[in-house]
Amino acid sequence: MAVLEKLLRSKVVIWILLVLPGLWPLWPIFIRPNPSVGADPLKYILHHFGFTACVLLATVLTFTPLRVLWPKWGIAQALNRHRRLVGVVSFAYAMLHLTAHLVYETGLDWSQLGHVFEVATTKPFQLVGLIAFTILLVLTVTSPNAAIKALGGKRWKLLHRLVYVAAALSAYHQAAARKVFPMQVVWIFGPLLLLEIARIIRERKPKPVARKAAGNAEA
């Protein structure tokens, strides 16, 4: 446990964990070619990046509730050092996902780009993905310390609560990407939902008077 905690505190380890999923498609496309992937490699890449973005977004959002629920747990503390990094990399995968979609739909014929965006804004499934992406874009742009200062802590925090909207929209977008409901959405977003519910219950319980005392005891 202590070893894991030490590893998770390290920025290098987290960077490796974040970059590796992006390299994964190289395996079935080039290293051990799989014809099921080779039939439509960019579609595979496109889905893989979207999947990774969802996993990272759902994962980073569990960090805070984990710390609230188990404040003394070293792993939760270690993970909370990397909230901003994991969040920004989640956006990076969302951007790769969108880029892959644009290349896939246009086949690099950019005269089709207008049409692709027109489709994206008229189909709820795609529009929802685009809104989630836009939210993540805004949050990424406002993630540097300078932006926090410029906005003021309170306003910044309020703005960054939008990440929960992005997560909910991503879950819908991922579910709607398949013809039948994909169970993976439950595995990815289910734990987050449970943790958030537990966190809300925990934060509500000791209402007005006891709240401060409980907070101090935990700290």
Binding site: I29, A39, L42, V103, G107, L108, H115, K123
Partner: peptide, 19 residues
């Protein structure tokens, strides 16, 4: 309702990254 049917991806044609 979720995507366009105006064009189609031709399986196995084009290059790896540009279908």
């Amino acid at each position: 309702p979720r995507w366009s049917q105006a064009s189609e991806r031709v399986i196995g044609e084009g290059s790896t990254f540009i279908p």
